[in-house]
Design a protein around this nucleic acid. Structure first.
Length: 316
DNA sequence: AGTAGCACCTGATTGC
DNA sequence: TGCAATCAGGTGCTAC
């Protein structure tokens, strides 16, 4: 279940392993993994073959490799975009794909990469549940083109990424504007967190964790969240994500980019998600679970109030 | 415009 | 024992 911290771990792994390699061959083993391209596998190959990877970037759960001509690495040509869906993984093997292990059962695409010194690498895209995809697409100029990860300025975003909001860990994310956006509308605050258009990267698990930390009921209507609560919620999101990132950063080694965060993910201490019936770490009362907005949701009914009890006048 | 609901897909698990 | 129903997850589309 890759969310922001898991995807960032993957990005880091890809960056360390395949930067400055050229794409020499493409084997789309299941056409649906490039379903966003009208021309399917052949179009994907035509758009990517012969280009080199000059950057591994990310916004929210959207990941992309910037591709450029070998002779002109400074000018982005195409984005090799990827979304992991809920089960996507990348794996990197040393050596040409003729030497690489037989592709995994869930391998949807295999790319042959070549380093400047001639060494060969094999990049596999695995995806059991096939919600993920690979894509090849142009970049568009954006107004707020800063992308989290390296803190580098990106005036360009891939077309399919341009519609989502800034990354939750993006230092340039404006807390005031975020609070304003999060407090708008009638939806429950959990659904607001899962909406990637205001802030990107928050998934089902970390939404529950952040709401528990901020003591907000997942169904509290957005307009009933106060401005200080909304700002505290962003702090909670960042704390939870930051912790997860710190623990997930070691989940790949020289041979594997172990993407979906399976290692270190579930042994991370969760306070709410998946703990229905277990005692709340704060108050000891059993945690609740319900399906809200089609998603499994966990919260403490004692610590997380659905409604504000009464208006409070803060002492000066 | 804003929001709700569902399709997409596979495999593990649970229920009968 | 075998088969069917259920569940999990993120996104994007359609319909209200």
């Amino acid at each position: 279940m890759p969310e922001l911290p898991e995807v960032e771990t993957v990005r880091t792994g890809l960056e360390s392993l395949i930067l400055h390699t050229a794409i020499r061959a493409v084997d789309i083993r299941r056409d649906s993994c490039v379903r966003l391209l009208p021309g399917g596998a052949s179009e994907f190959a035509a758009e990517t073959l012969g280009l080199q990877v000059t950057e591994a970037a990310r916004r929210g759960k959207f990941l992309w490799l910037t591709l450029a001509d070998l002779a002109d690495p400074g000018r982005p040509v195409t984005s090799l975009s990827a979304h992991l869906g809920m089960s996507g993984q990348f794996r990197v093997h040393d050596g040409a794909w003729t030497d690489a292990p037989e592709p995994h059962r869930h391998c949807r695409a295999r790319l042959s990469l070549e380093r400047a010194d001639g060494a060969q690498l094999t990049l596999d895209f695995l995806d059991q549940r096939t919600f993920g995809y690979l894509h090849a697409e142009p970049f568009v100029a954006t107004v707020d083109g800063r992308v989290a990860g390296q803190g580098t300025v990106h005036p360009l975003l891939p077309v399919s990424v341009a519609h989502i909001g800034r990354d939750a860990l993006d230092p340039e994310l404006d807390p005031q504007a975020t609070a304003r956006a999060w407090r708008r509308g009638s939806r429950g605050v959990k659904q607001v967190l899962l909406d990637q258009t205001a802030v990107s990267g928050i998934g089902n698990i970390y939404a529950d964790e952040a709401l528990w930390l901020a003591r907000l009921h997942p169904e509290r209507p957005a307009h009933a969240v106060t401005a200080p609560q909304a700002r505290a919620l962003l702090d909670a999101v960042r704390a939870v994500m930051g912790d997860a990132l710190a623990q997930g950063g070691t989940s790949f080694d020289a041979l594997y980019v172990n993407v979906n965060g399976e290692s270190g993910y579930f042994d991370r201490s969760l306070h709410a998600y998946g703990r229905a019936g277990e005692p709340c770490d704060r108050c000891g009362r059993p945690l609740h679970r319900a399906v809200i907005g089609g998603r499994s949701t966990h919260w403490c009914a004692t610590c997380q109030r659905r409604w504000v009890r009464k208006p409070r006048i803060d002492a000066v």
